[in-house]
Write a protein that binds this DNA or RNA. Structure first.
Lengths: 228, 228
DNA sequence: ATACTATACATTGCATGCAAATATAAAATA
DNA sequence: TATTTTATATTTGCATGCAATGTATAGTAT
């Protein structure tokens, strides 16, 4: 018998309490509400979220730890992972490498509808740029890169890229990027979309690589002063 | 005060029960004792491992699920992840891509001692080949590739490569590889080591790519009949 | 005053019991 | 006999209490 339950309308996530706790906490960490290095005691979380008890919370913390978003030391508790500049540089190297893999594969395998979705987002991103809405620009930008990777139709690649992006997202948002670089980045994106449409994988790979290298150089400087 | 506890002598792993359960179960899955698709009920595990109760076991299962080694469906339990050929192909594409990234980086950054360790393992692998000890050859082979990746000194890269290798390890061991291909693979490894010693990153990248492509073609065929 | 010790407090690890959900078996009906 | 329905048993999700570990505080000795 097909006793299909309606999708729940709970505030944050369906399914078990463990899963919804994971979703909520992940959001808090990735968005930066919980700062790198900050302690996450079980008690403090339980006070915030009434409909949660220790067992599912502890299961959630284990999951977040194996995702790399928190450090979990036995008998000492959970702390939001604090990444050194070396870690972030490493992650960026990996991210660029993954996009290099994706570039060639995506040009070979992406479908027309998927490409259309990217183009649509690209136009939305241009609007965000014109309105100088950096936060919105940043979010759409992230989505576009994820979709380019997804176009490779490689489940493992998409999963790893997503996870690794989440790790360093809170470090990549450069709140006060100067207009000049921003404008250049938009231009580069035009070329990126065009290479994708032409399915020129090798060109796309080089464009993405250059795009990220330049962008990261700038963001890196801004971040270096913060981390010091 | 430095109240340093002695390393425990428990059978499998130190630390919390959760962690030791993760280690034990991971070993069982990766080694193939627990077969893809097989159910892992809490009760069956608790019967095998007396010094374990439900809470740490359930936490361990959550961790293994987020590592991708088991599927965990709410209210239905845990099953060893069963990968389709498409999944395995995808994972191999990623693994080859990660080694491509690592090849260039490793040639630039690997230290002399690290290189020595690889050479030593290489010689051990030759012995295994001469003795026609395929299992030992396979294990050393895996270690060498991991160490080449580790030579890039990129924590994220090493972590991802390790995890992804574990996912598909049980599918990659081709029990009845023919001698001809095996001999060729050994020759290719000679060249790989040599390119690494010369720190010729681009050459190493191509050698690794070719090595894996050929090897996977063979293993893939053997596997295809099994999975059908 | 500093360093060390002992004690009280807080936090995490684990075991267990109960409730909810699912799977299995038995009974009833077509 | 095949199929649906009902009842039973099993299994998972969650809450909670106790034990073990770690942290902070107060006190003592040097």
């Amino acid at each position: 018998m097909e006793n299909k339950t309606l999708p729940e309308v709970t505030s944050t996530a369906r399914g078990t309490r463990t899963l919804s706790a994971v979703t909520r906490l992940r959001e808090l960490i990735v968005s930066g509400v919980l700062k790198p290095g900050q302690r996450i005691s079980e008690r403090s979380v339980l006070e915030e979220h009434q409909d949660l008890s220790r067992t599912p919370l502890r299961e959630a913390l284990k999951i977040l730890a194996s995702e790399g978003l928190i450090d979990l030391t036995p008998n000492r508790g959970a702390f939001v992972t604090r990444l050194s500049m070396k870690h972030i540089d490493s992650a960026m190297e990996v991210l660029i490498g993954l996009e290099s893999i994706a570039a060639v594969a995506s040009c070979a395998r992406i479908t027309a509808p998927e490409m259309e979705e990217i183009k649509t987002l690209h136009h939305q991103m241009l609007v965000s740029f014109q309105q100088q809405d950096l936060m919105s620009y940043f979010q759409i930008n992230q989505q576009i890169h994820q979709l380019i990777v997804d176009g490779a139709h490689n489940e493992a690649l998409s999963r790893i890229y997503r996870a690794e992006s989440l790790h360093i997202r809170r470090y990549r948002y450069a709140g006060n990027i100067e207009h000049a670089r921003w404008e250049q980045a938009v231009t580069e994106h035009e070329q990126i979309i065009e290479a994708l449409c032409r399915r020129d994988g090798l060109l796309l790979r080089e464009l993405l690589r250059a795009h990220h290298s330049k962008g990261w150089d700038v963001t890196r400087e801004l971040l270096a002063t913060e981390l010091k």
